[in-house]
Simulated scan of single mutants.
Amino acid sequence: MQFAPSENKIKVQTRNGAVTSFLRAHWGLHKVRADGDLHHALDAAVVACTTQGFVKRVSDYSRKKELWASDKKSGDYSRNLEIIDTDTGEITATNYQKKEGRDFPLPWDSFRADVKDALTEIFVSRAPTRKATGGVHDANIRSTKRMSKENPITTSKTKLQALTLASLENIPEKETRNANLYQALKKRIETGGKEPFAKPFYLGKNGEESDDAFGRLIKGVKLERTTKTGVLVRGGLADNGEMLRVDVFTKAGKFYLVPIYLADRVSGVLPNKAIKQATLEQDWPEMDATYQFSFSLCNNDLILIADKKGEKGSFIRGYYKGTDRANGNISIEAHDRSWARTGVGVQNIGIFKKLQVDVLGEVFEVKQEPRHGLAESSD
């Protein structure tokens, strides 16, 4: 790496974590990772102030402190503890036993307050995720033999190790044909500890669990589930894979979300139906000419929402994190990840805007945006 001409002989200086942690503690700057990502900015401020000259000041302070502690123990305060700057010859501290000499050095007097004020002004910029990385559909293909428009039930085989008391309730005909199997599995889960199916499960001819191999070995069971959408695969139905984006439409003051998946890109057909809660996908409303396209949202796009009253406390600005296709609710996360909200309904809200943030944290509203197709380059 080529550096600009400079009188400094040391072009790059590093500070290990122990040094920054020591300084943060003595400066009263507490690092709490769980509070969000601003601790990275806090570290940057500490590192920026930890120059070679400041490290020397801290070293002088530590040496002076040790000498004073020794004098205090012996009761001898006659020593004049002068700390001299070797570069300028200036006496930077004398008589450590005086109160003003015992304060831990700060880069400047108002450093702690300045850092805390600066952190409140930071807006974390994140890059939206516009490319797919997952599969077209889920690996588990569900049977559609019992599926109908009136009763959209699919079944799939689940290993016993994945069973819970809650999922066990989805065994078909648990009160009739599969009643014995249901009760035996329930008993094993309730009495089998943390790993109830660590040992093989055999069902005896009497309908109860067998202690030996004379019974029928059960490795998995079929479970039912209401399935209102998915990808047709080899005569079955698989859950959709990764959601690429949602396209937001408006009509009569309401907002409608059209989910677009990787499977849609593979098929080459741009979806045009918006999510409607508790409704089969085939019955979702079609976005015809009476609906107006507003914008598309990908993971980490910045948005602003508020209720129809527009009251101050109702405004939420954060990064879009996904849509629940079961009900059309979205998830939002704070710019610094200090909070997250799920299940946020948007159809009847008053304000729903897409924002853009540059690398320096400047925020702008996206006024107009054309609806893109399914090509990789368009997203």
Rank of each mutant, 00 (worst) to 15 (best):
N95H: 06
K73C: 03
W68Y: 06
K73A: 11
S78C: 09
E90A: 02
D85M: 05
A93D: 07
T92W: 03
I84M: 03
D76K: 04
G89V: 05
D76Q: 00
K73V: 08
K72F: 05
A69W: 00
E82G: 12
A69I: 01
Y77V: 14
L81V: 15
A93R: 05
A93Y: 14
K73F: 02
I91R: 10
Y77E: 12
T88K: 02
I83D: 15
L81E: 13
I91L: 11
D85C: 08
R79Y: 11
T92P: 01
T88M: 01
N95A: 14
G75L: 09
A69D: 06
L67V: 00
G75T: 03
S74M: 14
N95L: 12
D85V: 02
S78F: 08
K73I: 06
I83L: 13
I91H: 10
G75N: 04
E82V: 13
E82S: 13
A93Q: 13
I83P: 10
D71W: 08
S74D: 06
A69L: 04
E66L: 03
S78Q: 13
T86H: 04
S70R: 07
K72A: 09
Y77T: 12
K72E: 14
N95C: 02
I83H: 13
G75S: 04
L81C: 11
W68S: 00
D87I: 01
L67G: 00
D87Y: 12
W68R: 00
I84D: 03
D71R: 01
T86R: 00
T92H: 05
K73S: 04
E66F: 02
W68A: 05
R79Q: 15
T92G: 02
E66A: 09
G75K: 11
D71T: 02
G75V: 13
N80A: 14
D87T: 08
Y77P: 08
D76S: 08
D85R: 02
Y77W: 14
G75F: 07
E90P: 13
D76H: 04
S74W: 09
S74V: 10
N95K: 09
N80W: 13
D85T: 03
E82I: 10
K72T: 08
S70C: 04
D76F: 03
D71K: 03
G75A: 10
R79V: 12
R79S: 09
G75Q: 08
A93T: 07
T86Q: 13
I91M: 01
K72G: 11
A69S: 02
T94P: 02
K73H: 02
T86F: 08
W68M: 02
G75I: 00
G75Y: 07
L81Q: 09
T94R: 07
T94S: 05
N95M: 09
R79F: 12
A93P: 07
S78N: 12
I91W: 06
S70L: 13
D76I: 01
T92C: 13
T92N: 04
R79T: 14
T88H: 01
T94G: 08
G89D: 03
E66Q: 05
